[in-house]
C-alpha cells in the first residue's frame, strides 16, 4: 500500500505507481480537509504529481526522495503562489 489515509492525513509512502493518481484523487475528493504528507515518499509517478499540482494543497514535507524534495516541492509551491 503506497497511499494510506489515517487520522485525516493522506500519506504517500515508498514509490507511488501510476494508478496511485486516481487513488489520491478519490481520497482528496472524499476528504476535502485532509492533509497530504510525503515524508515517506521516495518517488511518485507523474499521475500522482499531477493530482498534487491540481489540488493546490500544501504538502507536508520534506519529501522522502531527493528529486521530489529539491525540484517538485518548489515547483508545486511556485504554482500554488501563482494561483
Amino acid at each position: 500500500m503506497t497511499i494510506a489515509l489515517q487520522d485525516n492525513v493522506i500519506r504517500l509512502i515508498g514509490s507511488c505507481p501510476a494508478e496511485d493518481g486516481e487513488t489520491l484523487l478519490q481520497h482528496l475528493l472524499t476528504n476535502p480537509a485532509a492533509q497530504i504528507d510525503w515524508q515517506g515518499c521516495e518517488s511518485a509517478h507523474t499521475t500522482v504529481i499531477q493530482v498534487l499540482l491540481v489540488s493546490g494543497r500544501t504538502v507536508r514535507g520534506p519529501a522522502g526522495g531527493p528529486f521530489l524534495e529539491r525540484f517538485i516541492g518548489p515547483a508545486l509551491a511556485r504554482f500554488n503562489r501563482q494561483v
Binding site: L29, I49, Q50, V54, I72, A75, L76, F79, V83
Partner: peptide
C-alpha cells in the same frame, strides 16, 4: 523544474 497544468482552470472535480 517548473510545472503547470495545460488547462489553468482545471479542478480536482473535473480532472
Amino acid at each position: 523544474v517548473d510545472l503547470a497544468p495545460t488547462d489553468p482552470a482545471i479542478s480536482l472535480e473535473a480532472m
